[in-house]
Simulated assay, not measured.
Amino acid sequence: MARHLIDFEVVKQCASDQKELEAKFNLNSMVESLESVPPADREKMATRLAVLDGNLTEDEISTRWLVALLADLYAKREVVADPLGEVEKIYADFDYPESVESFVRYMPATGGYDPAAHSHEQNVARLVENWKAFLDSAR
């Protein structure tokens, strides 16, 4: 929510959909109270709801969102006009995480790979392969 990827209505909907957690976390009263949350307290409430899953830290929550967005984009890469351009936007939205650098077009290649020795198609294929490897390791 702080990164403007979702709005407060999504938070309310997700909380409502989690009825099975109601008894364990007293979620019912929390969901009921969402309607009256003042705008200034919404981010705090969203964080409170997010950490119900094993007391996740802010970094762990951010990483989960990063992986979720990149996985969703990877699944749709064939229908998105410029999927690697979208990767670059996500990379920026999440404050340039080092874990994503290997499949960002403008970042220098690592591991002795020389992009100049390969075709454009080979370079793109390598980035997509690195993207898939990132997702595989994140799961």
Results as ranks from 00 to 15, higher is better:
55 N>M: 02
68 A>P: 06
112 G>W: 14
113 Y>R: 05
88 E>W: 09
26 N>A: 13
128 V>Y: 09
10 V>K: 10
80 V>L: 13
126 R>S: 04
2 A>M: 08
67 V>S: 01
7 D>N: 12
52 L>S: 00
68 A>T: 10
100 V>R: 00
78 E>V: 03
24 K>Y: 09
26 N>I: 03
47 T>W: 15
9 E>Y: 05
37 V>A: 03
60 E>F: 01
24 K>M: 14
84 L>D: 04
81 A>E: 15
75 A>C: 12
99 S>D: 07
7 D>L: 04
37 V>Q: 01
17 D>P: 03
20 E>K: 07
124 V>W: 06
3 R>T: 05
17 D>Y: 07
42 R>P: 06
124 V>C: 04
71 A>R: 11
4 H>Q: 14
15 A>L: 09
121 E>K: 11
69 L>Q: 13
46 A>G: 09
63 T>M: 13
91 Y>W: 14
5 L>C: 08
63 T>A: 12
1 M>L: 09
11 V>W: 01
57 T>Y: 01
60 E>M: 03
31 V>L: 05
94 F>G: 02
64 R>I: 02
97 P>V: 06
87 V>S: 00
100 V>P: 00
91 Y>H: 10
103 F>M: 03
104 V>F: 08
70 L>V: 05
76 K>G: 07
35 E>A: 15
42 R>I: 05
123 N>F: 11
73 L>C: 09
62 S>H: 11
76 K>H: 14
54 G>T: 02
78 E>P: 04
22 E>K: 09
99 S>I: 08
91 Y>T: 03
31 V>P: 01
46 A>W: 05
126 R>Q: 13
58 E>I: 08
74 Y>H: 15
115 P>D: 04
3 R>A: 12
11 V>K: 01
